[in-house]
C-alpha cells in the first residue's frame, strides 16, 4: 500500500465483566477509504466503533490514528485529532438550538474561534440540509432531523475519519437517497468512512469494502459481493441449515 492506513486497530478486545463484546479484532481503514461493517445484532459492531472513537478504552489491543498511538486518549482528544462519530440513537443537545449544537462541535472539536467557528457550523448545516432549522431547539426535531444533526455536528469538528452508526436506519428511500448523496460529497472531501449499517442497499452505494462481524469477531471481509456470498456470513445472518 502506497499510503499508510489512517486508522489501525490491532488485537482489540473489549470485555464487560465476563462478557466478551469484541474478541481480538484487527481493523484497518485506508485514507479515502469507505468500509462497511455488517453483522447480526449483538455482534460487537457498536462496541468496536466505541473503541475506535475512544468512548470505551479497550481491554486489550491498540488503536493508531495517522501512525500515532491514540489508545490512551479519550473521545474528546481523539475527536480533536480528527476522529468523529455519530450515535446509533441520536444524542442531540436537546435544550440548545440546532446551530448551537453544531457550533459547540466546530469550536471544541474543530478548535475554531469566532467567525471561523460560525462559518464551519453554517457550512456543516448547509451540507446536511439542516440550515433552515438553525434556530430550532434540538428537542423539537423529528428522527430524520436528529440524524441530520448528528451528521452535521460530526462534520463541524473537521474529521479525517467519520464513524457512522446506523445512520440510515428508519429512513425512507428518498431520505436514504439524500443521505447517500451527502456522504458521497464527504468522500470527495477526502474523509475516510466506517459505516455500521443494516440497510445493505444503502450501504453498498458507498463502501468499497465490507467487514462482517459475529459474536465479537470478524468472520469475513473483502469486496462486498464476496463477503455477502460467504457461507459463514449467510449462516450468521440466517442461522445454520439454511442454504
Amino acid at each position: 500500500m502506497a499510503e499508510p492506513d489512517v486508522l489501525v486497530a490491532t488485537g482489540i478486545v473489549k470485555r464487560f465483566n465476563a462478557f466478551v463484546a469484541v474478541a481480538d479484532v484487527d481493523f484497518r481503514l485506508g485514507r479515502d477509504e469507505a468500509v462497511g461493517i455488517v453483522g447480526p445484532n449483538g455482534a460487537g459492531k457498536t462496541t468496536l466503533l466505541n473503541v475506535l472513537a475512544g468512548t470505551y478504552a479497550p481491554s486489550a489491543g491498540t488503536v493508531h490514528f495517522n501512525g500515532t498511538d491514540v489508545t490512551g486518549l479519550d473521545a474528546a482528544s481523539r475527536n480533536r485529532l480528527g476522529i468523529a462519530r455519530t450515535h446509533q440513537v441520536p444524542r442531540p443537545f436537546a435544550n440548545m438550538t440546532v446551530f448551537e449544537n453544531v457550533f459547540v462541535a466546530a469550536s471544541m472539536g474543530g478548535e475554531l474561534a469566532g467567525a471561523r467557528a460560525y462559518d464551519a457550523a453554517i457550512e456543516s448545516l448547509r451540507l446536511c440540509g439542516m440550515l433552515e432549522l438553525g434556530n430550532r431547539r434540538a428537542e423539537t426535531l423529528g428522527l430524520l432531523d436528529r440524524k441530520g444533526l448528528e451528521l452535521a455536528r460530526a462534520l463541524a469538528t473537521d474529521p479525517k475519519v467519520l464513524l457512522l452508526d446506523e445512520i440510515g436506519a428508519g429512513l425512507t428511500d428518498a431520505e436514504a437517497g439524500e443521505l447517500v448523496a451527502i456522504i458521497r460529497g464527504l468522500r470527495e472531501r477526502g474523509i475516510a468512512i466506517v459505516w455500521i449499517e443494516h440497510v445493505l442497499h444503502v450501504l453498498l452505494q458507498i463502501v468499497e469494502r465490507l467487514v462482517c462481524m459475529d459474536a465479537g469477531a470478524i468472520i469475513a471481509e473483502g469486496a462486498p459481493d464476496d463477503v455477502l456470498a460467504n457461507p459463514a456470513v449467510i449462516d450468521a445472518y440466517l442461522g445454520s441449515g439454511v442454504t
Binding site: 474528546a76 450515535h87 459547540v104
Partner: peptide, 24 residues
C-alpha cells in the same frame, strides 16, 4: 464564550459532548 456552549452541551448529553471534542 465558547466554553459556555460546551458547558450546556455537557448538561444535555455528556457522551455526545465528549464525542465532539468537549473536555468534559
Amino acid at each position: 464564550s465558547r466554553t459556555g456552549a460546551a458547558i450546556q452541551a455537557i448538561r444535555d448529553n455528556e457522551e455526545a459532548a465528549a464525542s465532539v471534542g468537549v473536555r468534559v
